[in-house]
């Protein structure tokens, strides 16, 4: 455990262990990079697989993933879908959380339970019924257009219970004094929400935004069945198309996987603390 500063010998031992573990964790990533740098058919026809890229090394897989693999379009679709979902989820969650935390209204308890119970109905469970519904209203069809596809990809995720309760928890942490002071200052409910509650709970809301981003961007199952034409593939779906579909473009597929992970990796590096707080919100509180 994090105890006394270890002696030099012990420290070296730990560095060796930690480095070894790092290598193991990163090894699959290295393999992906190595395969992205190898010609697709060289990978396919290699008699014994190698941990190194097959020569001649091809550096252009990352750009070809865009030019030949058409990765740009799915990235845009994913970006737009993620943006809509995150913005909507944050807005709806802040509103609902505020109502649950500070307002009194009839049937409050029942409404809260109804919201919480949706956690028992993840999209995987409701998948086939939801797809059916969206088919009937024409959002999911082989001839779906841009608007229909974006609608199908985002509508079920415009609100989400986890965020509501996470932010409500944050609101409940606001000291009573602060509330009373705000009331004395003549803040309306919405004024209090905007000027006090949201700014004070910014860390919580920030964590939620990151989590929402992560889950919206990384989704697979719902887009897989709500998008019926390649034209509106998200990045994650595009990976499937790359997959092994096009063998002399194997390297592009692996490059695409790296590219797909980059936005989240950047977020992770920049907002490490907030992200970790969000991820651990349920575990350690």
């Amino acid at each position: 455990m994090a105890t006394d500063a270890p002696r030099r010998g012990a420290a070296i031992g730990w560095y060796v262990l930690l480095s070894a573990l790092s290598l193991i964790v990163l090894f699959p990533v290295w393999m992906t990079i190595a395969r992205a740098l190898s010609d697709g058919s060289a990978t396919l026809f290699a008699r014994t697989p190698s941990v190194l890229p097959y020569s001649p090394i091809q550096w252009d897989a990352f750009s070809r993933a865009f030019t030949e693999g058409g990765l740009g379009r799915p990235l845009l679709v994913s970006g737009l879908v993620t943006l809509i979902i995150v913005a909507a989820q944050t807005a709806t969650a802040v509103g609902a959380a505020y109502a649950f935390a500070f307002l009194e209204f009839p049937f409050k308890r029942i409404v809260m339970v109804l919201c919480a119970a949706t956690l028992l109905l993840p999209i995987e469970v409701t998948l086939i019924a939801n797809i059916q519904t969206l088919q009937e209203v024409g959002l999911v069809s082989p001839s779906q257009g841009f608007g229909e596809a974006i609608g199908a990809l985002t509508l079920p995720f415009l609100a989400q219970a986890f965020g509501i309760f996470l932010i409500r928890q944050g609101f409940l942490g606001i000291p009573k004094d602060l509330r009373d002071a705000a009331q004395l200052d003549g803040y309306s409910d919405l004024g209090f929400l905007r000027r006090v509650a949201v700014p004070v709970t910014r860390p919580v809301i920030g964590s939620f935004v990151l989590i929402a981003f992560l889950s919206a961007y990384n989704q697979y199952v719902w887009p897989r069945f709500s998008v019926k034409t390649n034209r509106w593939d998200t990045v994650q779906l595009a990976l499937r198309r790359f997959g092994l579909d096009n063998p002399d473009q194997l390297n592009l597929g692996f490059a695409a996987a790296i590219i797909a992970a980059l936005p989240v990796l950047v977020l992770l590096l920049v907002f490490q603390k907030q992200l970790i707080r969000g991820l651990t919100a349920g575990a350690v509180k």
Binding site: T32, N218, V264
Partner: peptide, 15 residues
């Protein structure tokens, strides 16, 4: 944490 299920699946294809 940065890898999605789809990404990690593609990653593991190399293995």
């Amino acid at each position: 944490v940065a890898s999605s299920v789809a990404v990690s699946s593609v990653v593991f294809l190399t293995l």
